[in-house]
Amino acid sequence: MKTRSLALLFVFGLVVIAGGLLLPQWMSYLFTIAMGKGLVVLGLVLLMRAGLVSFGQGLYYCVGAYVAGMLTQFVGVTDILVIMLASVAVSVAIAAIIGLLLCRYREIFFAMFSMAFSMILYGLLVRNQFLGSTDGFNVANPSLLGWTPGAEASSDLVLIVAVFLVIVLGAVAWRYLKSLSGYAGEAVRENEIRLEYLGGSVFRVVYVKYIIAAGLAAIGGTITALVSGHVDPEMAYWTTSGEFVFIALMGGTAHVAAPIVAAVLFEALRTYAFAVSPYTWQMILGFALLAIILFMPSGLWSLVERFQNKKARKTS
């Protein structure tokens, strides 16, 4: 990444944090949730670039959230760094096992099978009385390295951590996409047979991406849990995963910033639509999804690219 872009990113991060701290509580709350979801979608985009649409990222989103919840509420561990590490570790472990089976599938099988796993978790959580069944349970406030902020300040803490993670992980993802493993995803999408004949292992490529996506989803879930103070099994319901897919399509898979931007837009739109007419939110989503597929299959980012291309043409 060029130094100029890095500097811009850093400044952007500062601006966002400042904004988050100054803006009204509900706005920064929304923004934090959007950051969390954006990270889940970033992982999903990695998979989509390899041609795999997962309808089950909610599984790891939920795992990340519940791990955060259980650590803070039942074990008394509130350090945000520890929680992050733990939720990623648990998610990655689960993904490593599930991936062994799931990553042998493609297309609709991968999509629906991934959904099935997410629903299994949902089913288990709903039946589990200890974890609050369909109501879920509350999550205590996080702390950082010994410092325990009050209720208000803890949302700010989560916001800052979220923005920080988005920037760091976004930069790493950007770099990753330029590596062999990143390109390999597109190779898998384009021609698996060729990859095998080149001596590459398609399974390995997909497996690695699946695990990375799981880790990212867990971080997203943890962020959501900590800022909202609540977790429930709905996070593993397949419609949550469907939301992530929608955001991914909305943003497109061209750039690492797309998922984040799309997530922010999505949350903003959702809040507005819900306030205006709660019984038509899904319908609006449905029409928007169809519109994107029909008219803008590369997502909103294609508009950005078109704008960039116009600028480039003007200067040359």
Binding site: E107, A111, V245, W281, M283, G286, L294
Partner: peptide, 30 residues
């Protein structure tokens, strides 16, 4: 809707029918 989309990738069709699902769910509620 669907007849304009025949021949498209199977996963794309899942997404299209998912869109239809979302619309129908709210339509039923309305």
């Amino acid at each position: 809707l669907l007849r304009f989309m025949y021949g498209r990738d199977e996963v794309v069709m899942i997404l299209v029918t998912y869109g239809v699902l979302l619309i129908m769910e709210d339509a039923i509620k309305l």
